[in-house]
């Protein structure tokens, strides 16, 4: 992983996405950066953040240095308020108990649709990826934050396969398909924070990370972002944020 100043791209992703989580919220977090960022938020500004893991965990407080390798592993259950079945924890999404769904992504398009199933033609794929897991359910039912590396091959006009729905074809198409709740809220990358136009539901840049110029975000994106000249910059990760993050993941399982 290339270092950008005094922190890695993964560390930047974790800190920037962590800042979007608010105290008192309930967040359904996937494995990897989301798990790490949600756990970091509990230690920084959101001690009352309720985390859900798809293995069947409600309200845990993961131990520093013992990050779970999956959201179904026993380390996810540390200091949890409740363990429930997979089906029942996912049904909390459908019932409306989840403020934020938070996951990573392999490929995303201009309407926030995520692909984690196939690279290339699904009938004859170049790469068969591991698939949805709970991703489709989370993205179908909750307001979403996605954390992912900003690369041209990952940010495409149209994904090869919609594993987890964003705004589908934009405008009202998501709602028209029967997905009446949730939708994409923010995409956090190692270059920028992005959101979506209220009406067209196309992705747009909201803020640039320290030292990043608009042109480099556009150069790493496979569709037109229409970046203006007045995009604000994010605050760089603080020493406090980075120290807490590195204490959580001393083995660099997720922040390598």
């Amino acid at each position: 992983m290339s270092r950008n100043g005094s922190y890695t791209a993964s560390e930047l992703l974790a800190v920037m996405s962590c800042r979007l989580l608010k105290d008192g919220q309930t967040v359904f977090a996937g494995v990897g950066i989301p798990l790490l960022a949600a756990t970091l938020a509990q230690r920084l500004h959101a001690p009352g953040l309720t985390i859900l893991f798809e293995g069947g965990v409600l309200g845990p407080f993961v131990v520093a240095g013992e990050l779970p390798p999956s959201t179904n592993e026993q380390r996810c259950t540390r200091r949890a308020n409740m363990l429930l079945t997979i089906t029942d924890v996912l049904l909390l999404l459908q019932r409306g108990y989840v403020d934020v769904g938070f996951m990573g992504g392999a490929q995303i398009d201009c309407h926030g649709n995520l692909n984690s199933s196939f690279i290339g033609d699904p009938a004859k794929p170049k790469i068969r990826l591991p698939g949805t897991g709970g991703g489709n359910d989370i993205a179908s039912l909750a307001q979403m934050i996605v954390a992912m590396k900003h690369e041209k091959r990952r940010f495409v006009e149209k994904v090869d396969f919609i594993t987890s729905p964003g705004f589908l074809d934009g405008d009202t198409s998501r709602r028209d398909s029967g997905l009446v709740a949730g939708g994409m809220y923010r995409v956090v990358t190692d270059l920028a924070v992005l959101g979506f136009d209220d009406k067209s539901k196309r992705m747009k840049v909201l803020a640039l990370h320290p030292g990043v110029v608009g042109r480099s975000v556009q150069d790493n994106t496979g569709f037109d972002l229409g970046i203006g000249s007045d995009v604000p910059a994010t605050e760089p990760p603080s020493e406090r944020e980075l120290r807490a993050l590195r204490e959580l993941d001393p083995d660099r399982l997720y922040i390598a």
Partner: peptide, 19 residues
């Protein structure tokens, strides 16, 4: 009955589901 998978290609590939 359920409220996810609609609109996605995951649903599009499955023969045994019904809107």
């Amino acid at each position: 009955p359920m409220r996810s998978m609609m609109g996605s290609d995951v649903a599009g590939q499955l023969a045994d589901i019904k809107p």
